[in-house]
Design a protein around this nucleic acid. Structure first.
Lengths: 397, 397
DNA sequence: GTGACTTTTTTCAAGATATAGACTATGTAT
DNA sequence: ATACATAGTCTATATCTTGAAAAAAGTCAC
């Protein structure tokens, strides 16, 4: 069925990946501790770390004094072994950022988009220009760029084409992968923005330490990223997690997707503002929503009711240990009303799964899409580093 | 992080499992074909099959003539190497069945439960009596019983206690694993009945061949089994897939779980009959429901509307390649109204994920819970057969 | 029948791996 | 200085998978 490990050489590759990943997430660690973290024997840890040191993928990071014994040598991933570029394609902007492996931002390039106008060629040009700009600005040699991660709205098909379907964004079957690959030599990973943001929260934010989680993202629209057993769940065609258009009311309010009764039509910021009868445009949306939340309007009460039910549905279906509420609107709601949200979720959820799930706010703010996109590159790096050159095989989406 | 493979010996164990699983699901297969199916080299296939033959886990199954060449020897899993017992704990009965590895039913034992009365000690006694009965009836030596799988209503916590929480069944925190282990020496696996039935449909029914699927079960109550990448998704505490109590209408109809607006309150057979104002008791429920479906009542139209929306929510969230509609009420609805159900699902679903999901009816009928429970045992068997004795390590739930 | 040919399966030597346990390195304590 | 403690490395060993060669078990033409 699934290939898994076969030869004795895959064994090494796997153990190398396990060790590198442990080192990446645990930070500076001695060889001795690594035996416990990885389950490998001391001899193997010594061997594998030897390889990784020779490849300059990890470096020594000082000593730890001991009370009577040889001091431990700390090891860590070499933050400048390679660099990852993250791209955030949003409603109002294209943002390109370059990070080292510690996820320090070394350069940034941003382009505004006219609201409602996301011509494909314009976005592609911005992305490519941005990539060149951040590489130039940071002074990172192109050979050390491990790859590019791109977070976009809508559904992203897996595969080298990275076909994108985004109704509300006005993109229908756009082969973004093909378009970008024509303009840049770097390995490319394209994914839905909610999923990249979810991975950012899992790695560096409120999701840390959990293996089963859902990151709920509430902005103008509504999405979710589902983490099953530590990895982003994608389903058969990578569209899993389309929470915003699940039905919460049969024949209910109309949604911008064309359907009726979608959750997004009740808790998406755009829909909430419309329901409250507030005029706004894209540039004033966040401020208007913030005012509305602070005002204690009954529309917000209703929004919280629906949000609680929507979260309860996620808990019933996915049984996560943690729900992270993020997105700019989600953070605004949560900062004021988290207790009420939890209460409404409890009322609409089975007691057993609710009792084992904690609901928390996102920690990374609403702009972590690019960071998350860059983690796609790092994830691939941690999974398969051969000792050969940096960019060895053409990455696929 | 996760342990995975380590030593060179685990490699063999893994390849052995891969090969055995391929053989189990592909049926009689030659060594040559197995190289393609498993990706292993001919030499390794020869080695591993040699081991398995020596252990009597697989057997030769005839020759295939060739046109000019050595004929292929077919291999298959030895159906009488071991036997699995499946138990179905339902609303109205406890059913115990014993299967060989080909899932031929060799013996069966059934006990009626008084509707609404599921005292724990009575159920436990029935299960244990049933186990002894099927072993005796089949003449299978106890040493060849690989284990027992039990499918029960409600949420089953993982772990040796197999703690069960089933509100509608009247069981609150029942340590069924502990209770059963006190009365039987066989390795035990306890799981939710919807999940065991889902696995049965995946292995032998309408789910075959798909890796991402949802089995929707509609009977008196409503449940689902989610198959993610070929295995049952359980979430953090094994309660994932509680579809029946997701909210489809805020502040809607009351549900027997105590909540309001649950999907089950709209499409569960019990709720549908109540809504139609039909009197029934447990023994007449299925007939009454069948009559109602055939009558073309507007209540059924409404039920189909909600069912379509519920399925659409599953497709949006999980992006399966296949949805299997099962359970006795689901099968009745589907036989008459599958086209309408699909149409309602399409109306309530994003087009992209809907277009890649097929909605089909279950093939195993409503009584496959015990079969599915027995597959839990076989699954474990395929995963880890040491060459030692049959029951080597205490299984855990 | 027999030799040539074909296809499947097994055998064998080679290369690679993880591990246990012996051993070395590098400290502190007295 | 010496004893002790802890971290890390080295060595011998038992496995493993694999490619290539060899063997096995047929068919086919004559």
């Amino acid at each position: 069925m699934r290939p898994e490990r076969r030869t004795v050489r895959d064994l090494r590759r796997g153990n190398r990946a396990v060790l590198l990943r442990a080192l990446y997430f645990a930070g500076p660690t001695s060889r001795h501790e690594l035996t416990a973290l990885t389950g490998l024997s001391a001899a193997t840890v010594s061997n594998v770390t030897g390889d990784l040191l020779a490849d300059d993928i990890i470096v020594e990071a000082g000593l730890v004094d001991s009370d009577g014994g040889r001091p431990r040598v700390l090891l860590r991933v070499n933050p400048t072994y390679g660099f990852a570029i993250g791209v955030d394609v949003g409603e109002t902007h294209v943002r390109v950022e370059l990070f080292d492996l510690d996820m320090n931002e070394l350069a940034k390039s941003e382009f505004a988009l006219r609201p409602g106008a996301h011509e494909v060629d314009v976005v592609v040009r911005h992305i490519l220009t941005g990539i060149e700009a951040v590489v130039a600005d940071s002074g990172v040699p192109p050979s050390k760029v491990l790859g590019i991660g791109v977070g976009v709205p809508g559904i992203v098909e897996r595969g080298p084409e990275a076909m994108i379907h985004a109704q509300t964004f006005g993109w229908d079957s756009v082969p973004l992968g093909t378009l970008l690959r024509a303009g840049t030599p770097f390995p490319l990973h394209v994914d839905n923005g909610a999923k990249t943001m979810g991975q950012a929260e899992m790695w560096f934010g409120a999701g840390r330490g959990s293996r089963h989680a859902v990151i709920a993202l509430i902005g103008s629209g509504v999405g979710a990223s589902i983490i099953a057993d530590g990895t982003t769940y994608r389903g058969a065609n990578s569209s899993a997690g389309e929470w915003g258009h699940t039905k919460i009311a049969i024949g209910g309010r109309g949604c911008r997707c064309g359907g009726r009764g979608c959750l997004e039509a009740y808790i998406g910021a755009e829909a909430v503002l419309e329901r409250a009868g507030i005029d706004f445009n894209t540039s004033t949306e966040q401020a208007a929503f913030a005012d509305l939340v602070a005002s204690g309007s009954p529309v917000i009460d209703e929004t919280v009711e629906y949000l609680g039910a929507g979260l309860a549905n996620l808990i019933n279906l996915f049984n996560p240990e943690r729900i992270v509420v993020g997105g700019w609107a989600g953070l605004l709601l949560g900062q004021h009303l988290l207790t009420t949200i939890k209460q409404k979720a409890a009322e609409n959820c089975l007691t057993q799964p609710f009792s084992t799930a904690s609901i928390v706010l996102g920690r990374l703010g609403p702009d972590a899409v690019a960071l998350g996109a860059a983690t796609l590159v790092v994830d691939e790096f941690l999974l398969s580093t051969t000792s050969a050159s940096v960019s060895r095989e053409p990455a696929v989406s």
